[in-house]
Design a protein around this nucleic acid. Sequence first.
DNA 1: ACTTGTGAAACTTTTCACAGCT
DNA 2: AGCTGTGAAAAGTTTCACAAGT
Lengths: 254, 254
Amino acid sequence: MATGRTHRPATRSRGIPEATVARLPLYLRALTALSERSVPTVSSEELAAAAGVNSAKLRKDFSYLGSYGTRGVGYDVEYLVYQISRELGLTQDWPVVIVGIGNLGAALANYGGFASRGFRVAALIDADPAMAGKPVAGIPVQHTDDLEKIIKTNGVSIGVIATPAGAAQQVCDRLVAAGVTSILNFAPTVLSVPDGVDVRKVDLSIELQILAFHEQRKAGEETAPGEGALPAATARDDSADQGPDGDVPAVMPA
Amino acid sequence: MATGRTHRPATRSRGIPEATVARLPLYLRALTALSERSVPTVSSEELAAAAGVNSAKLRKDFSYLGSYGTRGVGYDVEYLVYQISRELGLTQDWPVVIVGIGNLGAALANYGGFASRGFRVAALIDADPAMAGKPVAGIPVQHTDDLEKIIKTNGVSIGVIATPAGAAQQVCDRLVAAGVTSILNFAPTVLSVPDGVDVRKVDLSIELQILAFHEQRKAGEETAPGEGALPAATARDDSADQGPDGDVPAVMPA
DNA sequence: ACTTGTGAAACTTTTCACAGCT
DNA sequence: AGCTGTGAAAAGTTTCACAAGT
């Protein structure tokens, strides 16, 4: 078959779908919990339930990594934990800097799950000179002036931006110029980055607005469609079926 | 599809794709900025650049809302702001409760962007009796015992969970039982909810792990395939994931 | 028996490219 | 001449269903 790629042997075909990559951390978390309970093997059905997806999807996802299961038996928990960790790059240590130590930045610095798996807060950076030297989560805050030096000294390639929106692009540019190639952005703004730099964003108001959209739709339905309590599905957010029109009271925003 | 629904004239065909819904807040933010600068109209090209998407996608997205543009001219900024706000349900006020007032919960409570657009923090709830009565962001923290009463008194339908992972499911169950139908979950755990309840999650470690995956891949390439610095593109976060998981809110530090 | 791994079908989202209106 | 709105193609993702192993 022509077009492109000479197919790898068979084991691993470069290019795991992005949707799959986004779920690997979920599987890993569920597997880690099983591992802590010393569960030796798990079926796709059980693991899928724990991760909140369906089993066909999970098996398909795993098939992109290779054939790590045993038919008739399931998956070896420890082995899968290792394989997924490796695939995600968690077998190495990633130094991370957090820029913007306000309420959120401090909360992130204190977040335990940070260190737990592959990530280490290498430095906290803030533009306020009054903060310099103060320890947050046991780490002294450093001034923005030293950003480039800090990045280089620590070999940081992942940066977290928790500054106000107005400062985010500027901080981003400096991080990138200093060598950071992955950014997690908490500031409510769109960041421009050169090709080759990854940005992921975390935005409270966007999430709330998406919820409001669905909430409004539910309200429009009013008439409970049976009210029959179906057994709870696992962590599913559906987008309700087509609701009739939604007449909306208007309050015209400012 | 399915049972023919002839309901509305023709203007609006119920059922906006989820991917489109997830981008509406982005467009709204960009439009609001234009509005504040008193820009009267904007082309799909300009607006797309500001929102970090491409113009074909933006036009397609808007086409699901209706025909709000003018060929040869562009879109009326004020009009679009209103239409999108209405579509998202932001023309009404959504009371929100935050459960779990630790570092993160407090940061969220202090987040300005919260109140700014359609959302109002109706109450803060925490399980620690020592916190009861203490004001955070000017709002007194209430005890979990009163959760049901608080939800009902305030007509809350959106809840934010910022508790430790271990408490999240329990809090979630109580919120749902009390009438909450949309949940924004910051706890690193999968929540089970009945059908009809929407859950969106915001998970720092998942986001970092996704970045680590791509970061590792970049490192593996090593041999820069040209190394030539291509001109920067506009804010593309690769992997536009999608789905219910993913991004989240940003707490603007004070 | 039981459970994985996977082609193929179904569905969703993005992109293309141009007709149609201003 | 310029820009929107949209069918149609392409790409990506999920689900189905069952053959292939253990």
